[in-house]
């Protein structure tokens, strides 16, 4: 079983800390990832808005490259990328006409995709493929905190690619439990944070962020963990602006779940790029 990695643009850019902590914590668990060579942008929500057909091809190219290099599973840490890759993969596997159409295009650039790759989000991979028990065994420093897991939209929806119930997911809470934390139950686990419109309609997006932060805080969370760079950047980077705009005390540290996992596995903060989080100063572990 060869595990691939599709980092995505965000993890290359502003949210590099996710990539760093992911690779490090996976290494600590004994999982090695091979990056897809010459991968390209998945198109996110922007390219489908411009040209749906083109957006399929962007994804299909990545999948074809992964298949070519013999990867069976592609780990896609960014939920946005996961959503695109998994959905197109699902369509190719289930719709023969679609598959042929895509391959006709890919032929032009000398590629072909037969649908042999599986796209997985790291959370899903850890819980369903790797095993919670194995994580438990490797925990060195249990995290004794009340942790709110924020799932966001795109890895529980739409239904075709959903890992679990979109209304009340549990997977990330399971990881939190495994590393000694106390999961916090709150109503906004999968409510949208507005990442895709933070630039074009930031006023509306800030309101959504505020709702999420407030709900976490109200339910007694000490930390938020996320599994998506866009959610993270919204909750973490925009937090100060949100606090200022709404003038409410809803400050709360936001981490990647991989960072929290890494800490519990005994890695140090520097290795996990914890200091790159804007809410780093609030973190008291």
């Amino acid at each position: 079983m060869k595990l691939g990695l599709y980092p995505g643009c965000s993890l290359e850019g502003l949210e590099n800390s996710y990539l760093v902590s992911l690779v490090k914590s996976f290494e600590a668990l004994g999982i090695n990832l091979e990056e897809i060579k010459d991968w390209n942008c998945c198109g996110a929500t922007a390219i489908p808005s411009i040209n749906v057909e083109f957006s399929y091809l962007l994804v299909a190219r990545n999948l074809a490259l992964a298949e070519n290099s013999g990867l069976n599973i592609v780990i896609t840490p960014c939920s946005e990328c996961y959503n695109r890759l998994a959905y197109v993969n699902y369509k190719i596997k289930n719709d023969e006409a679609f598959k042929n159409r895509i391959n006709n295009y890919l032929k032009e650039i000398g590629l072909r995709y037969d649908g042999n790759v599986e796209v997985k989000h790291p959370v899903d991979f850890l819980v369903k493929s790797f095993g919670i028990d194995k994580i438990k065994q490797k925990v060195k420093k249990p995290i004794n905190k009340r942790v709110a897991s924020y799932y966001g939209c795109l890895f529980v929806r739409p239904r075709e690619i959903s890992i679990e119930s979109a209304e009340n997911p549990r997977t990330m809470d399971q990881i939190v439990e495994a590393i000694g934390g106390k999961p916090v139950n709150y109503g906004f686990k999968t409510k949208c944070c507005g990442a895709s419109i933070i630039i074009t309609r930031s006023d509306a997006a800030l309101k959504l962020i505020r709702n999420i932060l407030k709900s976490c805080k109200d339910n007694g969370a000490e930390l938020i963990v996320t599994s998506c760079p866009l959610c993270h950047s919204n909750l973490d980077m925009q937090q100060e602006i949100v606090v200022k705009t709404f003038n409410e005390d809803i400050k709360i540290p936001v981490l990647y779940f991989t960072q929290l996992l890494g800490l519990s596995l005994g890695l140090n903060e520097k290795d996990l790029a914890l200091d790159k989080n804007l809410t780093y100063e609030m973190i008291k572990l």
Binding site: T45, P48, R159, A166, I197
Partner: peptide, 24 residues
């Protein structure tokens, strides 16, 4: 332009229609 592509409507639609994809 405001649709945040959160797929909430898609997930719940009793007709299995995706407004999100229509918006695209």
């Amino acid at each position: 332009w405001i649709c945040a592509s959160c797929y909430n409507c898609t997930y719940r639609c009793p007709r299995k229609i995706s407004f999100t994809r229509m918006a695209f």
